[in-house]
């Protein structure tokens, strides 16, 4: 075991420090060190998107980021999407639209969809399908996920 490295980050708006080995991925540290297990492991090689988090506002596969690279970074995970006692409109629309079945890909989709809506508040169906192509869902066939993101965008626009 190598010497542990001290990393300082901001996760879901709170300052967080942790120790990690150089070989540990951000996914491993989030889940096993910080116990933020909402971020899921599906393939551990950047192909399924289940471990998507926002790193300085951009969606990344946390399995492909070394934890030491997070030094000074701002990280958002699925645990940070809901605001206080309220679900984010994306979460609410996923529930109302039955946009999840087994739910293992859902955290990654929510984080990726949030990144999309942060950047493009009024995406077309094609925009949504393109931006979410890095996230694989094997249960839903994507139809209800795409519609939930469209609904959330409309709901957020209406409340602005």
């Amino acid at each position: 075991m190598g010497k542990r490295i001290h990393v300082t980050t901001t996760i879901n708006g709170e300052p967080v420090e942790f120790l990690c080995e150089a070989r540990q991925s951000l996914l491993e540290v989030l889940r096993d060190v910080l116990r933020l297990t909402g971020t899921k492991e599906g393939c551990n090689n950047g192909n399924c998107g289940a471990c998507t988090v926002l790193l300085n506002g951009l969606p990344v596969d946390s399995c492909l980021v070394l934890a030491v690279e997070a030094e000074g970074a701002t990280i958002e995970t699925v645990e940070g999407i809901a605001c206080g006692g309220h679900l984010h409109p994306l979460q609410q629309c996923f529930l109302e639209g039955a946009a999840l079945q087994c739910g293992i890909c859902t955290p990654g989709f929510l984080v990726a969809a949030k990144a999309l809506l942060d950047k493009n508040p009024n995406p077309s169906e094609r925009d949504i399908r393109f931006e979410l192509a890095g996230n694989i869902c094997r249960c839903t066939g994507y139809d209800k996920i795409v519609r939930a993101v469209q609904d959330a965008a409309q709901r957020m626009a209406a409340s602005r």
Partner: peptide, 22 residues
């Protein structure tokens, strides 16, 4: 079409899958 009973857990990351066991 009611909202599923385990829905809130699954959209907040709180649902416990086997790999989340410690």
């Amino acid at each position: 079409r009611p909202i599923r009973h385990d829905g809130a857990d699954k959209v907040t990351g709180r649902a416990i899958y086997t790999n989340d066991m410690q």
